[in-house]
């Protein structure tokens, strides 16, 4: 095996297989947004602090700005685009809408993925568990109260 600066990778995103040649230096979030044109996942801070780029990688919540695309070779990725089906919001998304859990909406894709990861592991989280689960996601509009309410409602 030799190190390469460009590589063909295969990833499954929201159930669809993609094969692309990418630079080794390309961040996963840029691959998702610019190469695959899935612009639901956002870039907020690009320093690993804000969580707007959060996606599920083989079922595990990660920040896609702190990974290279080549590290995801062979992985299954879930992004916010995979939540709704046939134009219908899923229960969590609907709860965010019902509880006014977003204002500008920039953090929402990451919040939804963090909440998705939490609810898969823990179907009836306490408020403290919800707050711990979204600690890596910064929202500058809502003050978090309605986000926590929405996740609580979605859990029920």
């Amino acid at each position: 095996m030799e190190a390469v600066s460009r590589k063909t990778i295969t990833v499954g995103v929201n159930g669809e297989q993609y094969e692309r040649e990418v630079d080794a230096r390309r961040l996963l979030i840029h691959f998702i947004r610019d190469d695959l044109d899935l612009t639901g996942s956002h870039i907020g801070c690009d320093t690993g602090n804000c969580g707007a780029c959060s996606v599920l990688l083989d079922g595990t919540l990660v920040k896609s700005c702190m990974m290279l695309a080549v590290q995801a070779d062979g992985a299954k990725i879930e992004t916010v685009e995979g939540l709704a089906s046939e134009g219908e919001l899923n229960g969590l998304q609907q709860a965010f809408s019902d509880h006014h859990a977003l204002q500008c909406g920039y953090c929402t894709p990451g919040m939804l993925m963090s909440a998705t990861a939490l609810l898969r592991e823990n179907s009836s989280p306490s408020e403290e568990e919800i707050r711990k689960a979204i600690q890596g996601n910064i929202c500058r509009c809502t003050g978090y109260v309605n986000i926590v309410e929405a996740i609580k409602a979605a859990a029920q």
Binding site: M1, A3, S5, K7, D23, R25, Q71
Partner: peptide, 21 residues
């Protein structure tokens, strides 16, 4: 953010990793 160009390898054993390093 755009990183400086870099090469990448994902070896499957410690020995291979040591060789690359």
């Amino acid at each position: 953010m755009l990183l400086r160009e870099v090469e990448y390898a994902r070896p499957a054993s410690v020995q291979e990793a040591l060789r690359l390093l």
